[in-house]
Design a protein around this nucleic acid. Structure first.
Length: 273
DNA sequence: ACTGGATCCTGACTGC
DNA sequence: TGCAGTCAGGATCCAG
């Protein structure tokens, strides 16, 4: 589910609700996420005061101690919700972080494609270790860097920008939306695009991400904020999920194709580059 | 190095 | 109402 804007939305809310408070207790009902949940660490290292919540791409970092953090990736269906402590858990509510003042932060993930891992070291070290690319909002990146990295690459441009080793945080929705805004056809080989096209792409990406964060992310089916509310960017989607519907710019029907197993939406008229 | 395919898992939806 | 098939916002591994 969550791509960069959704993870950033969650980060901001968790910062508001979690930073400075103490996690009193952790209950793990199901440790079987994508990677095994570090149950022993969680039960042995509480109470703990949360120092900060940070983000790189789609990863969330809950800073536990100076040199230790929990690294959360919400996969397709993961999410956090803040509830009164005694709210009974529902199906797929796998982990509870019991906080001060009668609240519980609950991790919910029906498909269990998400993960909660332990990392000892800096965020930078985690990013390097896992060979994750730069974050488009936090790191100094630009279209030139993408242009240089894309030379001789034959993969479709959409696949290229969704590769987390190239840039972090772009999933299917924002890849489609960005390419529409930039006027670039999603199947175009990454290596065939000009430096100008990459600069347009970069401008479009930053714009799409920032506007989505302002709207609180996109809620299509599973994504909710930690207060249970939904995002509103889905109302602004230009191509994603709109196969057969008229393009907002030229009124021709939006097309749907599959690129590397992922559904892709685009306007055949407006996206010619 | 790059690509397509399979895989982890559950739920929502469609068509018979 | 039930059942089978398909599709999901992700990421990794493997074979060719």
């Amino acid at each position: 589910m969550p791509e960069l804007p959704e993870v950033e939305t969650i980060r901001r809310q968790l910062t508001k609700n979690l930073a400075g408070t103490t996690i009193q207790r952790v209950v793990v009902r199901n440790p079987h996420l994508r990677y095994p949940v570090p149950v022993n660490f969680l039960t042995d290292n509480v109470p703990a005061r949360v120092r900060s919540i940070q983000r790189h791409g789609k990863h969330l970092f809950i800073e536990w101690d100076k040199n230790t953090c929990l690294v959360v990736h919400m996969g397709m269906t993961g999410g956090f919700i803040l509830l009164p402590e005694w709210t009974p858990p529902e199906k797929h509510d796998h982990i509870d972080f019991i906080l001060d003042k009668g609240h519980v932060l609950r991790y919910h993930d029906p498909r269990r494609f998400g993960s909660i891992r332990l990392h000892r070291g800096t965020i930078k070290e985690f990013v390097q270790l896992n060979r994750i690319g730069p974050d488009p909002l936090n790191d100094p990146v630009n279209g030139d860097l993408l242009f240089n990295r894309s030379r001789k690459r034959k993969v479709p441009i959409k696949t290229f920008i969704m590769n987390q080793r190239v840039i972090a945080g772009i999933g299917n929705i924002y890849a489609c939306e960005t390419l529409f805004v930039a006027g670039i056809h999603p199947a175009k080989p990454a290596g065939s695009l000009s430096a100008e096209a990459y600069n347009a792409l970069w401008k479009a990406l930053i714009r799409v991400l920032n506007i989505s964060i302002q709207a609180g992310g996109t809620t299509i089916r599973d994504f909710h904020h930690s207060d249970g509310k939904i995002g509103y960017y889905q109302q602004k989607l230009r191509v994603y999920g709109r196969a057969g519907l008229p393009c907002f710019q030229c009124h021709q029907p939006i097309h749907k194709i599959t690129l590397q197993q992922r559904t892709s939406y685009y306007c055949p008229v407006c996206q010619h580059e």
